[in-house]
Design a protein around this nucleic acid. Sequence first.
RNA 1: GGGCACAUAGCUCAGCUGGUUAGAGCGUCGCAUUCACAUUGCGAAGGUCGGAGGUUCGAGUCCUCCUAUGCCCACCA
Length: 718
Amino acid sequence: MSTELPKTYSPKETEDKIYKLWEESGFFSPEGLPSVALAKKGKISEPESFTIIMPPTNANGSLHAGHGLVLTIEDIMTRYKRMRGYKTLWLPGLDHAGFETQVVYEKKLEKEGRSRFQMDRQQLYDEILEFTLNNKKNIEDQTRKMGASCDWLREKFTLDKDIVETVYETFEKMTNDNLVYRGKKIINWCSKHQTSLSDLETNDIEQKDNFYYLQYGPFVIATARPETKFGDKYVVMHPDDERYKSYKDGRKIDLEWINGPITATIIKDKAIDMAFGTGVMTITPWHDSIDFEIAERHGLEKEQIIDFHGKLLPIAGEFAGMSVSKARPLIVEKLKSKGLLVKIDEDYKHAVKKCYKCESVIEPQIKDQWFLKMKTLAEPAIKAIENGDIVFIPEHYKKISLHWLKNILDWNISRQIAWGIPIPAKICVQCDEGIVDTRDKITACPKCGGDIRPETDTFDTWFSSGQWPFASLGYPDSKDYKTFFPTDVMETAGEIIFFWVARMIMFSLYITGKVPFKTVYLHGLVLDAKGQKMSKSRGNVINPLDFTDKYGTDAFRMGLVIGNTPGTSLALAENRIKGYMHFANKIWNVARFVLMNINTNIDPEFNSYNEKQKEYLNELAEIAKEITDDMDNFRFYIASEKIYHYFWHTFADKIIEDQKNSVKNPADKDNTASQQLLGNILLTCLKLLHPFMPFITEEIYSKLPLPQKTLLMIENWP
RNA sequence: GGGCACAUAGCUCAGCUGGUUAGAGCGUCGCAUUCACAUUGCGAAGGUCGGAGGUUCGAGUCCUCCUAUGCCCACCA
């Protein structure tokens, strides 16, 4: 009754077939699981639930190696818990990814010689929607290729109607709780993308620039940005600075400036660093956040110098209409000719804020934007983390999160882009008041009675994805929310701990009163073979499907997980994956050997083993115990290595070699016991391997002579 | 300026709460091979665990300092 396996294992022919088998089995859904079905019939008690919400994939391209890692680790956890009998749910999702997607789409437009600024807003939205929905299908297929055993029936998209509703309800509650405000504040403006950005969406890049010392009446001031100085009519110094004691606060001074004579006012403020430069500066409140704050403190006028396209305004006189970069040298030239340029320091190093997507210099601008007060939201999150209600893996992310939460600033949640969830509000055309209006009921400005227009800004995408754990489960009334929330594990990239993880914690505590997840598992980056970050511009981006095609998904998954400790980045060398393809081959051949030599059903209850065989089984039980312990403690990098090592160097190299004679010789007194020994060890190994290498193990399992079997994916964990 | 992490074999990294001759994968070298598998087997070489000090019966593992590296946060004009 021996079953023959083909001589070689072909991932290509096996994987799609196996995935289809899984998907059709209904076991991806918790209610389809045998343990849940039995409980429903009252035969066993209700199993505990285990939930992972998949970080919603950005629906704006293909999966990259990082996604491969997310899917692999989450699938390992899910499959493990499922085999342990948990009511297991892994909920997949897709993110419209507002700004990110719009940037991707704008690049596409650019290639086609088009621009979003020539497009109707609705048309742009519709095109991006179509683009996104096309990608959605693609991403779902790729996710299946990775072997992800997630519940497709529950798949959510961040623009689903019920999600948007939840987001609006949250916004309304925050408004009622006085956590939302709209105000003219200084914000990060990207002139290229024509939108404001949050602090997290800008990068401080250190660079060397000229530092200009300018004669400003009796003072020398220093600046790296002379083009902003046209409107400077306040000169500020520290109140304790002895050098400028004779200049009293509020005193007016007439002086000759870039475009003619002006009157400047002396301001004393403690924000000035006496030791820096000359200890005197002029301020540009519209284009600098410190200057803005000084102006606010003293009630000073603010004037815009640079428009939203990065061009100088009429206040710049002859330079009006010029871009900053073009105007700067000309302005310096003029200052020089007027004798106002004292000196230039050419070695000035400072940090310049840039757009994290296009690296354009961020121009601080004053603009009416929607802000979220963060301090009150952060406090419960800080407490929950300090109490250990949420455990971080690796541990040091606890400190990192706390540090950020304790120093949190208000969050600009409005973006001037079409692609996103519209902010449900009206703006008064007369007094500029912004009124939150989630039910679309307001018809006139409650403040001045003026006409209103709908707000055109959309939410920062993280405002909606921050609510994902409870929104995707159907908060507040659904059965899923009641069953699966709080979730068990959030597994995502360490990179987005502030963008996403910290905010999910704040939102969940605020809305549901509960933490969104008990454990945060943060993985590092997947780097290329040389240890360099993958990027499109470097051209070293790995498409996971290239590797799964070439070496099989199981091998790719092993390459991602073995030895990859949480939090540290992984250099993904092709050789690594190739090595695990060899391992898959080894598994296949071991299975072939066992199947060739077994002529009876595998009997897990068999116990007439000789002493040595018993020792082998004890050793395996010991390894299984260790692996289980590793799995329970998120040490997948070591669990996978242990089973790899045991399978190859103990089972194949030692046990099989040792049993070869008896298993091949029907006359041998140990023949039956040898058959049972090898059959049982193989079965146990397949179970232990299944979370890591689901395809090949399921395929072999289907060929095993077992009295009764279903699918390996729901077999009991050893 | 503040914070976090890392430094272990040629390369990429494990080493959990301190305990006998420090591990893995890849690579290198030697030998074997009509066997389930050359996508193989057996074997070998290779590390004073960044440096200095300390705690301890005992430290790669804990503490301090130093050096190197990487990352994050931050409103010095």
